[in-house]
Design a protein around this nucleic acid. Structure first.
Lengths: 225, 225
DNA sequence: ACCTGAACACCGTTCAAGT
DNA sequence: ACCTGAACACCGTTCAAGT
């Protein structure tokens, strides 16, 4: 039952890169990216911060690693026959992953070394498009617009800091109270008539834009046949 | 000629919120967001870091402030008759601003207090859509997809850390050298046949997706008439 | 009203020393 | 091979003290 050495103290025993990255991901999920420090991470793993350097190159390496972990959570739907269905499901899965890890979208920036899950993800998306008849140039355009939208939407969604519709409405009400409504009439109307409604739903909003983009790409693909 | 007090030492003289934020923006532009520290900012303004607290509430306030400065650089094109032309120009202007300030896209997240330029920007965009006949719900969808794409594209563009086409090609070549091409055939093909080409241009790529989105929105607007 | 020095509680990382 | 303690060069921010 117990591992070969160390009978008590669940963690430790066999510290390695994988376990360091998993713990880092959890720490970022719990307290945001600024809660992820080498010292706190060491504490979690019952080790001094300096020991982590035996398993990762440094903090940058950890950030690269947890971004790659997020990519590994995206369902690639590579088996699907219809490219549009495949891309729709992939995009929804990506937004779900970014919603679970709100620190991720803004971290994608400045990360220079893509990990294996990131490469696999990109290869799969491009492959789906190419097999559906997109030229290389069209596939590049399609990738750019789809993934730009996915990350940008996630960034905006996280920006509005509330998660549930009720929280969202409470927040909008607060903003509205401080807002000089006569200076920003259209914005005020939008908050009152739209953001305050309980029906407001990020998932629905996301899929509206997603399908608009996918329909536009479909038209281009057909035109090129 | 000289200000009322202090004959030499150009800066200082009249430190205020405005001048602190301007200096912070320059610091972030020069060395990235991690170069913006209270101590270095004080140094620039020939003052101890602690003096800055007389003019801003703290570092978070500074971050809110420089994000609002970026929004103030976006041309609102509110006088234009055609909503599509207006939205196109405004989106291009937004991407230009985000390109000038590469630290900005990822900072939009987590900023909770929108400043006056941010509010003016949002109000102007929604107003343009409403005056063109978009319903509130449609305007909300349109805003979400346009701005999601704008920020997301900027985030991706900054992610690829090179700016000029030559740099971009050199980088792609480096990535390719380390890439196990047989594992990621579609990705490798894309890098060789597309990203390495000198014609590759972020501005063109951006406008492709932008027009795809605007055309999709136009169709929806016409359908609702 | 504005600025400062010292201090506090933190960071990431290096390095020599331990086992 | 892995871990540690002490140290270095930084952070943001508070506070009492200056003018």
């Amino acid at each position: 039952m117990a591992s070969q050495k160390g009978l008590s103290a669940r963690p430790r025993a066999g510290l390695n890169r994988e376990r360091v990255l998993r713990a880092a991901l959890v720490l970022a999920d719990e307290g945001g990216i600024e809660a992820l420090t080498m010292r706190r991470l060491g504490e979690r793993l019952q080790v001094e911060a300096m020991s982590l350097y035996n398993h990762v190159a440094g903090k940058d390496d950890i950030l690269d690693g947890i971004v790659d972990l997020v990519f590994s959570e995206i369902d690639l739907t590579s088996g699907l026959a219809d490219w549009k269905t495949a891309m729709h499901q992939r995009a929804v899965s990506a937004r779900d992953a970014l919603t679970r890890h709100p620190w991720a979208p803004s971290l994608m920036q400045a990360r220079t070394k893509p990990g294996p899950a990131t490469l696999r993800h990109h290869n799969s998306v491009i492959g789906t498009l190419r097999k559906a008849g997109f030229t290389i140039d069209m596939a590049a355009h399609a990738f750019s617009v789809m993934d730009g939208y996915i990350y940008g939407f996630a960034l905006q969604q996280v920006n509005l800091p509330s998660r549930t519709p009720e929280e969202s409405a409470a927040l909008a009400e607060n903003i509205l109270r401080e807002l000089p409504a006569q200076d920003y009439p259209y914005l005020a109307e939008m908050i009152v008539e739209h953001a305050l409604k309980p029906e407001y739903d990020y998932a629905v909003e996301f899929e509206f834009g997603l399908d608009l983009i996918l329909d536009g790409l479909e038209r281009l693909r057909e035109g090129a046949d």
